[in-house]
Every structure is written in structure tokens, then in C-alpha cells.
Design a binder for these strands. Structure first.
Lengths: 214, 214
DNA sequence: TAGATTGTTAATCGATTAACAATC
DNA sequence: TAGATTGTTAATCGATTAACAATC
């Protein structure tokens, strides 16, 4: 399994998009170069940490000058794979699914949702945020024929495993799972779980601390 | 600021709910006690880590036996403040707001959403998932009069700061922010940001790795 | 009693931060 | 040249994991 390449730490991966967004704003001000300390000051990160994060993308800077903003934007986008569009489908057009479908910037994040699926006959054929809703029976064939890379699961927890199996059957490469259940998949399939309420226990803990003091 | 009490590590806080859910399932099987190794095996955590996490709640176990399940459930709920209900409001009844309003188990997480707010006149007076939608003009007064503790922000990013200021004006204690912007608040107000797409760059990175190999 | 499990202290690991040489 | 910034190595910090004594 070990191939000599250290995996990029998850905290770094999570920070990279915020660098990208800042650089895109900076580019609009006609700046050409930027240093780690400027980025760090803006985003409240340690400059050394910024430098290390950026190095994972393979960017090379200039001493005394900093990084070329255009090059840096490209490097981050390429590193995350956001320069090439992967076709995706979304399964489960409830309110969460609708919210995800409504996100306008997936194409800038390497994703294009080409269709949505649901099991409710009343929804089939409707168009939500520009995507047609197809019946869930057609998922496997659709994934296979359209070479879909990513499946986004926004169905209720009970349905998530069945949907997963259908996606896998069609040859999906990665699953972005918003349902609060663990999915079982073959080892070569990427599963990334997204917890809508992930940070809530931290809020709870802080809130209960101040409520107790009172 | 330092008061001799070490803050509980965020990773531990994030794991506590999963212990709770497992214990609640276990309770239904009429088990009375449970050990760290059983919990760890189920949730794929190191047993020592489980023990350390649980100790933050103040629970005391019995050697050779384990922890009393009922006591442990209570300890986690009390520790997170999920035993007492805090009144909350939600602001921004778009698709994301509707999805959050539709979550059925907030009362088991110490929260009760008592009303929702929006600025769209067509939505005012409607009832979504049992909550009436009120006009945003009434937020500050509502927070003050109803002693609302938590404000959930699901408005578009442009509107998030204005909404925040209105909540603060009314005397809110904590803000759970789903908008992708940094909010400025007085130092005594808790802000917890929730990023709907937090794990997406990790999926991107893994996906681009396998696409490159191909 | 013997052995399983807790509670606690020590070791390890990984990420963050500091130090500093190289460089433009 | 002088000084700011990168690139890199070392130190620190915090979380995880291992070791082990206490205990029921």
C-alpha cells in the first residue's frame, strides 16, 4: 500500500479552498503576487502553515516577492482536481437535496450535477434548479451510460444503502454521503460522509457552559 | 482567562454524539452495562480513546463490569446540555432552512425551534414543518421577549451579517451559522460555523488521485 | 482467586509553530 | 548591499495510543 508519497493532511486539504477564494478576490484588485504572511493575516493562519499547505500543490514561489497569484490559483485548482469537470448525479430531491442542487458554483469545484433522482412519482419529470428529476430505477443504467463519477446521496437514512448499491452497480467512483449512516462499499469506491450538524455538539458544549455560570 | 479547567478537545466533543446514539440503541436490547472495548469495536475507535472521551462527562465506571448504560446516557446528555431545552429560531426559509427545520430530533439535542423568519412577504404566515414563518423585522423583539438562546442562520451570505446584528440586538447567546461568511459579533456571543460542503475538498483530492492513475 | 476492566501515566504520532539558512 | 520572503529543518504542542497499576 505504501508508495512513498505521504498523504496530504486533511486539515491542509480543508484549508486550501479558503486560500483559493481569497486569491480569487485578490486577483480582482489587480494584484499580481502575494506572500504567505498576507494570506495568513487575512485568514488568521500562521504564515508557515500557509507556506506548507501551498507546497502540497507543487507551487514554487520567489524569495522576497512571494507567489504569482495566477499560478497559485491554477496550482490549487489543479491539485484539488477543480480544473476538470466530473459529471455527478444527486439522489433524493427533498429539501436537503434541493438545497445542494441550488448551489450555483459546483462547476468551479470540478463538479457538474447532470441529473437528479427520486422515488416519488409526483416529482419525476420536474425540473429543480435546472436539473430534471428522473426515477430512481434508472440510476444504475444512467451512471453507466453517462460515465458518472460522483453520486451525491441526500435520501433519508433508511434508503441510503440501497441507493449506494445501485450507484456502485452502475460503476460510480465516489460517493458524497449526506445521510447519517455508514455505507458499505467495495474498497475501491471513495466514500466521503458529510455531517450537516457536525459542529453542533461544540455549540452545545459552549452554550451549556455559559448557561451553567448564570 | 485561564481558570484551571482544561477545555474538552473538539475531536472528543464530535465523537460524544455517536457514543450516545449507540448507547440508545444498546439500551433497547435490554443491556444494562457496556465496556469501552464494546463501544470501540462498534464505532471503530480505540477503547482507550473511548474511555478518555467518556471521562470528560464525569462518568465513573466499575472495574471488570463497565459503565451503567442509563447513567452513561444521562452523563453525556447532561454534559452536552441536551437534557435542557434551549429555545431557538431559524432565519432564512430557503431550501437549506427548510431542510434544517425538517430535522425531527432537535428536542433530543437540547434545542427547540420555536419560529422561523424570512424577508419574502409571500412566505410570511406560512407554516413549514410546523413552524410559522414571521417577518424578519420582528426578530430582535422576538428574541428578547421569548428569551431565545440560539439563532440558526440559513440566509444567503450577503444577508448573514445583518441578521446576526439583529439577533445580537435582541440578546441572543449563540449563533449557528450555515452561511459561508465570517460573522462579527461581540466577544461574549458564541458563533459556530457549519460548512455544508466541508469534506468536499477531501473527496476532490481522492477522486483526482484515482482519475490521474487511470 | 483469577481475570477483565477501569483509571492513569507514559510513549507515540501527527500537525502546528519556531528557527534559520538560502535567495532574490 | 540589505532585507524580505521562500524553503527546510527542528521544536513544540495536542491528540491518540500503549502500558500498567488498581480494583472489583
Amino acid at each position: 500500500m505504501f508508495n512513498g508519497i505521504k498523504p496530504v493532511p486533511e486539515p491542509s486539504l480543508r484549508r486550501l479552498p479558503s486560500y483559493l477564494y481569497f486569491l480569487q478576490r485578490l486577483k480582482k484588485t489587480n494584484k499580481k503576487v502575494v506572500s504567505c504572511s498576507v494570506i495568513g493575516q487575512e485568514l488568521r493562519f500562521d504564515p508557515t502553515q500557509v507556506r506548507k499547505d501551498l507546497q502540497y500543490t507543487g507551487i514554487v514561489g520567489k524569495s522576497k516577492v512571494g507567489y504569482d497569484i495566477d499560478k497559485l490559483i491554477d496550482a490549487i485548482e489543479i491539485f484539488l482536481g477543480w480544473d476538470k469537470i466530473s459529471p455527478a448525479i444527486l439522489v433524493g430531491v427533498g429539501s436537503l437535496g434541493t438545497a445542494v442542487l441550488g448551489y450555483p458554483n459546483f462547476h468551479r469545484h470540478g463538479l457538474e450535477i447532470v441529473a437528479a433522482f427520486d422515488r416519488d412519482p409526483n416529482k419525476i419529470g420536474n425540473v429543480v434548479h435546472g436539473k430534471e428529476i428522473l426515477h430512481i430505477d434508472r440510476i444504475s443504467d444512467f451512471v453507466q451510460e453517462m460515465h458518472i463519477h460522483v453520486g451525491i446521496i441526500t435520501v433519508p437514512p433508511e434508503a441510503a444503502q440501497i441507493v449506494t448499491s445501485l450507484l456502485v452497480l452502475g460503476g460510480i467512483k465516489a460517493i458524497w454521503n449526506f445521510a447519517p449512516v455508514a455505507l458499505s462499499v467495495p474498497p475501491d469506491i471513495i466514500v466521503q460522509n458529510e455531517d450537516l450538524f457536525a459542529s453542533f455538539p461544540i455549540l452545545s458544549n459552549k452554550l451549556s457552559a455559559i448557561l451553567k455560570v448564570k
